[in-house]
Design a protein around this nucleic acid. Sequence first.
DNA 1: CTGAAAGCGCTTACAG
DNA 2: CTGAAAGCGCTTACAG
Lengths: 338, 338
Amino acid sequence: MSRRSVSAKDVADLAGVSRAAVSRCFTPGASVSPDTRARILKAADQLGYQVNRLASGLIRNETGLVALIASEIATPYRSHLLSALTEALQQAGKVALVINTDRSDASVERAMRQAISYRTDAAIILSGMPDQSLAETCLRNGMRLVLINRDEEREGALRVRVDDAEAGRRAVAILFAAGCRRIALASSAADTPSLRGREHGFREAATRSGIDWIEERRGMTSYETGRTLGMALLARPDRPDGIFCTTDLMACGIMDVARWRLGIRIPEQLSLIGFDDIAQAGWEGYNLTTFRQPVDEIARRSIDWLLSGNGGDSIKELAIETTLVMRRSVAQGVVATT
Amino acid sequence: MSRRSVSAKDVADLAGVSRAAVSRCFTPGASVSPDTRARILKAADQLGYQVNRLASGLIRNETGLVALIASEIATPYRSHLLSALTEALQQAGKVALVINTDRSDASVERAMRQAISYRTDAAIILSGMPDQSLAETCLRNGMRLVLINRDEEREGALRVRVDDAEAGRRAVAILFAAGCRRIALASSAADTPSLRGREHGFREAATRSGIDWIEERRGMTSYETGRTLGMALLARPDRPDGIFCTTDLMACGIMDVARWRLGIRIPEQLSLIGFDDIAQAGWEGYNLTTFRQPVDEIARRSIDWLLSGNGGDSIKELAIETTLVMRRSVAQGVVATT
DNA sequence: CTGAAAGCGCTTACAG
DNA sequence: CTGAAAGCGCTTACAG
């Protein structure tokens, strides 16, 4: 705020060269003689010179900034994904601008405008959805768009999708094979694309199998909601003996309520399957069987796409596969299912 | 990358005014007649104009960017703090540039250079420490510096400290009051200022009280380390009946190993106290008595300081108090201690 | 209130 | 290989 920082001009003066030479010295692949390069580098080091990315972004039309737009970023799954994304971005020489939203359309819109303001090279959206016109504005400005676990498509954007429905279907098969005869779907009322997919797959397979099933959907995706869900599902006389919970975080809540409040033994009296494979699912206190989202792969492939020029016919959809992580929250059934 | 985005010139042309007028229209407090303002706003909206913060940052010498430098950002405590900081920053009209480090000096240095490159208004450092000269470079450039839970001071930077040692001392008193007669300190080998403070307080109080105590320090601060610590401390015949663990995350590991591997009942056979009050500490499966770090307060006060001009004699240190959260991991002792 | 002009720090053809 | 010059999109005195 007070003093201005050292500029290329300062370095040029000290090294006895032109400003252009200094610029070239810091531009990969530009031609500078070894001698002047050495002089410039020395002067730069002496002065503590750091190229001003604001100015260079302005004329090169590439800032190195990538916006990460998400809600509930302190949540285990989200923070893991954010961390992977940030890391992958850094590997690629970019830097993450993280913008918190409250999942309302208005806040997503505000976030997108921020991204435009800073002329980020791309925006990766993990929650909510910008409307079509705003997305077009971004694309028109040359900004690339990645939508993670979103439903709708946006012309020119990359959609990253996980096989949610398939997981829901497999969960039913696993519970059935474990000997469960009355199963339940537990989910939040958040109504996001991912949740919908998992719910849909479950319902489809459960209905088709003819097995006795119920469902419960409440609140937002949180541990607390899991507890509510657990009480609603397990405090009744005809309680289910198997539950597929659309999120590990909620599954932890269900498990705790079952175990500590209702005295239900897991997996002997209740089989439970989650989704995400957050760190806690692997903790000894939970040992939750779940579907793992390959967070690092999602991050890596998203960033790869971002970096791979904007070829007109580049891929528009990335299908990511989850993998089943068998732990100890499902009863040993008659048949081992994978 | 392809096309350039719409600029103030475009808006000016459409509205039939000068570029300066457009600029003023988006500068709070600048004088524009209601009539021209309306025309400009209309044109801007039509064109989808968004002020270029790169350019404005360049001349105003204020970018609105704040760097958040931290390692292990997917960890419960860190992600919570990061989330609070991001949120507070947004409330203040700033935006967070988050930079991941691996806690090595080199990576912190790289992060700081990034921050300088983007001319962030400030940098908030949660892990590691930049060397003096680099910190001075930042300060000289008018960048403000906040050090959270760091030891050393940097002239002109704000240090935010939590009463770590006091917590360590109180933990000893609580364990003693709970009837524990052989207590242990469990910590990671990470050797960060916060950990050192908590360890120091514990040792001091334990030694002074004359109670029988041991300690174990291993690995990095993680759940897994907690399990290792638990095995080391609890699988021995003369195992402690009370443990103060410097981090909730590790305490969860200790608790799980005690309960599920060694069959030790908590709190009947073992009292456990953690630190941080991460979400999991409040989960029914853990119910961990711990010291809460007021994350939102830390974030809010740090940002307040950032915003409050750089008055020469502004405060340089912020002492934050933790509060004891009594849950159910400590045995009911003779006396209730708070 | 409003516009013309200068300037922030950079990069990039264009000559030499 | 190197420098002079133009220009990126903005803001801010300076006149009017």
